[in-house]
Design a protein around this nucleic acid. Sequence first.
RNA 1: AGAGAGGUGGCAGAGUGGUCGAAUGCGACGGAUUCGAAAUCCGUUAUACCUGCAAGGGUAUCGGGGGUUCGAAUCCCCCCCUCUCUGCCA
Length: 424
Amino acid sequence: MLQVSVLKEQTDRVLAGLAKKNYPNAEAEVQHILELDQRRKHLQTEHDQSQAEANKLAQQIGGLMKSGDKAGADELKARTATLKTHTKAAADELAQVEKDLQSALYLLPNLPHESVPQGRSADDNEVVREVGEQPTLPEGALPHWDLIKKYDIIDFELGNKITGAGFPVYKGQGARLQRALINFFLDEALAAGYTEIQPPILINEASGYGTGQLPDKEGQMYHATADDLYLIPTAEVPITNLYRDEVIAADRLPIRNTGYTPCFRREAGSWGAHVRGLNRLHQFDKVEIVEIDLPERSYATLERMLDHIEGVLQKLELPYRVLRLCGGDMGFTSALTYDLEVWSAAQGRWLEVSSCSNFETYQANRLKLRYKDQNGKNQLLHTLNGSALALPRIVAALLENNQTAEGIRLPQVLHRYCGFEQIG
RNA sequence: AGAGAGGUGGCAGAGUGGUCGAAUGCGACGGAUUCGAAAUCCGUUAUACCUGCAAGGGUAUCGGGGGUUCGAAUCCCCCCCUCUCUGCCA
């Protein structure tokens, strides 16, 4: 969440940023928050003074009791009652105001970086570059949802039977391709200097709040209500929350982690014709990269993460493009997001396979994730993450783009990981 | 899952109702000593918030929440976690 101090000291910048994110009623909302903050300060002072007085009295009573002056003590005790009521009233109201302030802050999205283009929807995203050549497919080329049936490698019907829609079963070469891709992605991340993490895939409520899935995206996560735990929608959540409530020594930065996890998304209400096959699932596999770095370095870090992801796509020989998301299309918590999309030749469309973002201090503020600056003062860090990469759409593109009459030819780099060179 | 023990500052570890934000030790940092280092000695060593130009002052925090009391690390209730034993399991 944003810091109140930023709202107060840089109100114009905040309003401009919220406008770019198409946030309605920004001015009134910010004004409301500033008023709540004023009220909070006032109540805090009131409470503290009242409490200080009570503390003083209690000490005096203690002294009198010791010296045996019971009457004197009783006299002072009589005076504590009103003081107590007053303190409690202030404390109760303070708690309420703090709660209101917090919920109001939770509703404000992160401010976009200055390079973020203005815009309302995906149509307004900026194409930063396009890399690789779109293949010409043979006559009678099939979309991946037909290819997976033809080669019997991914089975939606079976998934349907044992779980439900959007939970495919990978079989034979399909399963092996999944495992190969996971290993390949992890190895690439390791080679780039990331440390591998295997986190839990169920997280508690505090973690959900830490990275911003809660409260605003509650409906997107599967909730195991018996234990009040959530299935992770991305490894970003557990891996970033590893550092919740930490003050990290500057010389340990940057922290660069990677991890493979299955990801679970309810995707309520987002189904339609364009999400056939592997295009959108409730459960999918993903290798994530997560970095924590000093504010002054975080944008250089973001570019380096992007380089890494692009390198992986190039090794897979998939044509891709890099988008800089516009204010209207980017995520709630992000300051700058690059989306990477691969060309899915048979569908004739771009598929998002990675989203790489700098959250600046937005998550760190919730996480209380800080470092000590040169003056020994705790400062918020910047958090970043990106998919490197999400499997299903990579698989879709690999299948579609590489199909031949003889079978699907896998890119060279996957051969040793798969143990076969082609499917079918 | 059952029984028992326990959760205190960066760590170890005292503290069972009153000047306890908390002894002591270790570590870390600054200084003295030294050619330098070790040892020794002196000092500093939490976080958040309120107030103040600042120096400073105040409030809260001893796993979390609630309660008793003029006053709670200390007493009571609920929850969480850790350890040991038993059970169960991969």
